[in-house]
Amino acid sequence: MNGVELFLLGRTLMKIGEAAMPEPEGGSSQYAGNTRAVLIVASDVAAHPDSAVGEIATRTGLPQSQVSTSVARLKEAGAVVTAPDPADRRRLLVRQAPRLSARVSEIRATTIEDALTTALDENTPEARKEVLAALEVLARHLSPQTLARPRP
Rank of each mutant, 00 (worst) to 15 (best):
L9Q: 10
V4C: 05
Q30Y: 12
G54C: 01
S65G: 13
S101K: 08
A46I: 02
G26H: 13
H48S: 05
E106L: 13
I107Q: 04
A32M: 06
T82Q: 12
L6I: 13
G61V: 14
G17Q: 11
S101G: 14
P86M: 14
R90F: 08
V4L: 09
P86Q: 10
V94P: 13
A97D: 03
L6W: 09
P22T: 03
Q64V: 11
V71Y: 07
L92Q: 04
G61C: 10
S43W: 00
D88S: 01
V41F: 06
A47M: 06
L39K: 01
V38Y: 01
M21K: 03
A37D: 03
P98K: 06
D44C: 13
R91C: 02
A77L: 10
N34K: 08
R103Q: 11
L13V: 15
S43H: 00
I56S: 00
V104K: 02
S51N: 08
D85R: 02
V104H: 02
R11A: 14
L6R: 14
M21I: 03
R89E: 07
V80Q: 01
E106V: 10
R11S: 07
R11P: 02
P98D: 09
A20W: 13
P86S: 13
R99T: 15
T58C: 06
T35L: 11
T12L: 07
T60I: 02
G61N: 11
H48E: 00
K15C: 08
R95T: 12
G78E: 04
S105G: 03
L100Q: 15
M21D: 09
A102P: 05
E106H: 12
R73Y: 14
V71I: 15
R73F: 12
L13T: 05
E55M: 07
A97P: 00
T12G: 10
G33M: 10
Y31L: 08
R90H: 13
P98S: 05
G33A: 07
L9H: 11
A20S: 15
L74Q: 04
V80D: 02
R99D: 15
R11Y: 09
R90V: 09
R59T: 05
L39E: 12
A37I: 00
V71F: 09
R108N: 15
A46V: 00
D44W: 07
V53E: 04
V41G: 03
A83W: 01
T12P: 04
R11K: 11
R11Q: 11
V53L: 05
L39M: 15
L9Y: 08
L62Y: 05
Q64N: 10
S51P: 00
V67A: 07
A77T: 14
P24E: 10
E25K: 15
S68T: 12
L93G: 05
R90N: 08
I107W: 09
I107P: 03
R89A: 07
Q64A: 12
E18Y: 14
D50V: 03
R103V: 14
L100P: 07
R73N: 10
